[in-house]
Write a protein that binds this DNA or RNA. Structure first.
Ligand code: MN
Ligand code: MN
Ligand code: ZN
Ligand code: ZN
Lengths: 143, 143
DNA sequence: AAATTAAATGCATCATAGTTGCATTTGTGA
DNA sequence: TCACAAATGCAACTATGATGCATTTAATTT
């Protein structure tokens, strides 16, 4: 993790009026080090010296602030990924494709993919949507 | 519940070589009596005299056989709905829109809505997908 | 109709995910 | 450096879901 990356995280915490603490910076470092979402169990393993409860509280406040978003995978396990843009406090815009590999179980946030338009039956009013796909990821296809 | 409906369920269990037991027929009756998916906690409440574990086992075997499918709502709670068609053992085709109301929390299976096509980045191979939308449902919009 | 048997259920127990209350510590602004 | 709100840690608790094993029961065979 570079100095400049760490500064970016500190700035991010500042922006949201959150104290720059070790556990919080570590969560951001862990999550940003990967190109996929991180499951809660994995994260708990990575954050060894940090209390479980503290981790839950960090994840909750980060989600509320629009720093990260939560994705439930095929097994109902919570996964977390850093929001790339547009997300604000209590107003997420994570309308991208989430790809869940059925081999390695990884969840990919495919932000660049624009979702096609669709319409709802009368009476329904949508304010958010997500497309989930499941299958095999590039890594697992190669083998 | 009509006689003919009950017969349909018994036939369904026969088809999948499952014994026609009280708990199983009750699960099917409860789920088919609604136009939305049923959450696991709700189902557990409805199945009072049936053991929790039995309910889990029924839900698991029904899902395996392609009789019902599982949808996780915004809170990560498991919801179940009867499959309308096309689903087979270990091969679900529930590629429809799931609408999660943020007021009443209900999950609607909008089977009739055809999903628009989309394409994946190179290397990804999808074998299933679901579109999730969240917002307010017709009932909750009326108030 | 009675016996047989695999399948299904119930009960005890366990594991994991997530929450809450409260005491202690720590980051930050004065 | 002081004061204080915010953050963390610890204990305890709830909820969801799984597993092992004894008992019951639906479906098949005699
Ligand atoms: Mn995402
Ligand atoms: Mn559905
Ligand atoms: Zn994979
Ligand atoms: Zn509603």
């Amino acid at each position: 993790m570079t100095e400049i990356t760490n500064n970016r995280f500190e700035h991010l915490l500042d922006l949201h009026h959150l104290k720059k603490t070790g556990p919080r910076l570590k969560v951001l470092a862990m999550m940003s080090a990967k190109n996929t979402a991180t499951s809660q169990p994995d994260l708990e393993g990575l954050m060894e010296d940090v209390d479980r409860v503290t981790l839950y509280r960090i994840l909750n406040v980060f989600e509320e602030k629009g720093i990260i978003h939560k994705i439930f995978d095929l097994n109902g396990t919570a996964n977390y990924a850093i929001c790339t843009s547009n997300c604000q406090e209590h107003l997420h815009h994570d309308e991208h494709l989430h790809f869940n590999c059925i081999v390695c179980n990884k969840v990919y946030c495919l932000n660049d993919l624009s979702l096609p338009a669709f319409n709802l039956p009368p009476g329904f009013k949508a304010d958010g949507f997500t497309l989930y796909a499941s299958g095999t990821c590039p890594q697992c296809n190669r083998k």
